[in-house]
C-alpha cells in the first residue's frame, strides 16, 4: 500500500517536472504528448517506490481521503493570509527607524501527535508572523524564536502562536 502511494506520487512529480505536453510540438506519433518520457517516468517511479518505499508517511490512506484533501484546501488560504501578514509585519519592523523589536525564545505546547503534523506545524510557525521554530522536544514541545514577544508564559504563547493552525492541522493529519 505504502509503495503504491509512493509510486503514484513520484510519477505525478515526474510528470510535473518533465511536463511531456507541448501544444506547439507534433511528435513522431502525431500528438502533442511525449510518450517516451511518460514511459521512462513509469520506470523511474517504480525504482523509487522499490528503493524508498519504507521511508515515507505513516498513514498513506490519508492522502486519498477526500475529507483530508478538503481540509488541506481550506488550510491553504488561511496559511497564505498569515504569510502575507507576517511579511507586512517584518516590512514594518525593517523600515521603522527605531526598529521596535523585542525578540526572545518562548516555549509552546501542541496537541498534535503525528510526526508529519508536528513538522507541518513547525514549518507553518516559521513562515508566519514574527515566529521561527528553533527546536522540537519530546514531540510536543516547540521552542519558538519570537520577534516581538507578547507573553513569555507557556499557555498564553501557545494560545497566540499555535492555536490558529492547530485546529486545521489536527483535521488534516490526525
Amino acid at each position: 500500500m505504502r509503495r503504491i502511494v509512493i509510486f503514484i506520487v513520484s510519477y505525478l512529480l515526474w510528470c510535473g517536472l518533465v511536463w511531456p505536453y507541448d501544444q506547439n510540438r507534433i511528435g513522431t506519433d502525431g500528438t502533442a504528448w511525449d510518450t517516451g518520457s511518460l514511459l521512462l517516468g513509469l520506470g523511474v517511479a517504480l525504482l523509487v517506490a522499490i528503493l524508498f518505499g519504507g521511508a515515507l508517511t505513516n498513514k498513506p490512506k490519508n492522502l486519498f481521503n477526500p475529507l483530508h484533501i478538503f481540509w488541506v484546501i481550506v488550510y491553504l488560504p488561511v496559511f497564505f493570509y498569515y504569510c502575507i501578514k507576517a511579511n507586512l509585519q517584518v516590512m514594518y519592523l525593517v523600515l521603522h527607524p527605531d526598529m521596535p523589536i523585542k525578540p526572545g525564545i518562548v516555549k509552546v505546547k501542541t496537541k498534535l501527535t503525528s510526526e508529519s503534523g508536528v513538522t507541518a506545524l513547525a514549518n507553518s510557525i516559521t513562515l508566519t508572523p514574527g515566529t521561527l521554530t528553533v527546536d522540537v522536544i519530546n514531540d510536543n514541545e516547540l521552542y519558538v524564536h519570537w520577534l516581538v514577544v507578547e507573553s513569555a508564559e507557556e499557555d498564553k504563547a501557545t494560545e497566540i502562536i499555535v492555536n490558529r493552525f492547530e485546529y486545521f492541522l489536527e483535521k488534516i493529519f490526525d
Binding site: C83, I84, N87, V90, V94, L95, M99, P103, L127, V134
Partner: peptide, 28 residues
C-alpha cells in the same frame, strides 16, 4: 519583498532575527 528581506538582513541585530527576515520575506 526580497528587497525588504535583504534590508532586514542588514539591519537586524543577531542571527535569529536576521533569519526571521530572510525566511519570511525572501520565501514569499
Amino acid at each position: 519583498f526580497n528587497l525588504f528581506g535583504c534590508i532586514g538582513l542588514v539591519r537586524f541585530p543577531d542571527v535569529y532575527t536576521r533569519l526571521q527576515a530572510a525566511t519570511k520575506c525572501v520565501t514569499l
